[in-house]
Design a protein around this nucleic acid. Structure first.
Lengths: 201, 201
DNA sequence: CAGGGGAACTAGACACTGTCAAGCCGGAGT
DNA sequence: ACTCCGGCTTGACAGTGTCTAGTTCCCCTG
């Protein structure tokens, strides 16, 4: 009942997220987190088993954010190619909005999802949104359209990764608009040609 | 002239690669490298400015290996969809053969390519192989087919990344054959539908 | 109203890391 | 013969994650 009860815990998570966004995963050290939260360097271990458990908590929130991005895109677009494009753009937009968090979510060396069933479950929910959209566009069952789904997911995830790791800086400019335009172009190029034309853009 | 002259340097690189392959990037610490090379913990700094410089050297070799994988695939297949498929499979094969090295090559926080022009140049060579293949299949210039190239590269890179990070363990089995089969399927699904049918597989 | 118990938190220590600073040492150049 | 210098070693420092041992304080029971 007392909001003070979990005060330290939430301050720790807040400080973690702050550090993550400021300097990436490398800047997120347990001791610095504790320092920012104004507690001793050992206090975090009373709320989390180890560093990985804290990261898993951030990752959980990350996947639920990703799910929200995708769900909104899915609802606001008609089924078929256009919906796939929209979800793909949402996926990359999330990655660009939360680069450090996105990287954290896909680093097994930092957090092994299998150890955190709650986090894994939310991750699966996020993966289901594009999967369902692809199945609908293909007119196949979720299982039957696995290759299509993998192709789609891979492309979107690869695009996000390459942009974040700066591998496309040479091709694209540094600005956010150029990146968004590129994502839109690649996505619509992909899904239009695969799932049929759509009028958008 | 004396082969002993660079003995320490090459032993350091060998030890680095060994550690990288044994336990990933996290296991590669300067002190452990020095220990394995049989020198003091400061010796590496007489041959490399810092940790990043050692990693850059490994990355350089990684990109030249990747280039070799791609070049061989390109030569052994006819231009068009089939060549793109082959190069894509080669790309992912490299990633699966050298997982730790592949990850290292695409982590800007670990090695910023711009700081190492030699490494960057070899990386560009590696990226040019698929780029040329896509341009040929499209019948456009290298510049004009940038979106197609990005779509292709993103998909292949994303597939490699997702497999390595274990995100497809649930969909695929753990075995290498299942992965190879999946890669083949996704790749040919992609390039066949985009660049026309080909008889293979 | 004691008093016991346990949770939240602190403090100290350990082994480890990357890197700076100083010293040793042997061979090359003048 | 003497100096210089690059390759290497040793020592130190601040920083890390985490184990262990206290300390403090609130709640629950008798």
């Amino acid at each position: 009942m007392t909001p003070l009860r979990d005060d330290v815990r939430s301050r720790i998570l807040a400080a973690s997220l702050e550090l993550l966004n400021e300097g990436g995963v490398g800047a997120l050290s347990m001791r610095e987190v504790a320092r920012r939260a104004g507690v001793s360097h050992q206090a975090p271990y009373h709320h989390f088993a180890d560093r990985e458990a804290i990261l898993a908590e951030l990752v959980k929130d990350g996947f639920s954010q990703l799910h929200a991005y995708e769900a909104r895109a899915s609802e606001q677009s008609p089924p078929g190619a256009e919906r796939i494009t929209a979800i793909g753009i949402a996926y990359v937009s999330f990655a660009l909005d939360q680069p450090a968090l996105f990287q954290l979510m896909f680093r097994r060396e930092l957090v092994e999802l299998q150890k955190f069933p709650q986090t894994e479950e939310i991750a699966d929910e996020a993966f289901n949104v594009p999967h369902a959209a692809v199945a609908e566009a293909c007119g196949k069952s979720m299982d039957a359209c696995m290759p299509e789904m993998l192709a789609c997911w891979s492309m979107v995830h690869g695009l996000a990764t390459l942009i974040l790791e700066g591998k496309l800086d040479h091709q694209l400019g540094p600005g956010r608009e150029a990146r968004d335009a590129c994502v839109r172009e690649v996505m619509s190029l992909y899904s239009r040609q695969r799932y049929g034309e759509h009028s958008k853009t």
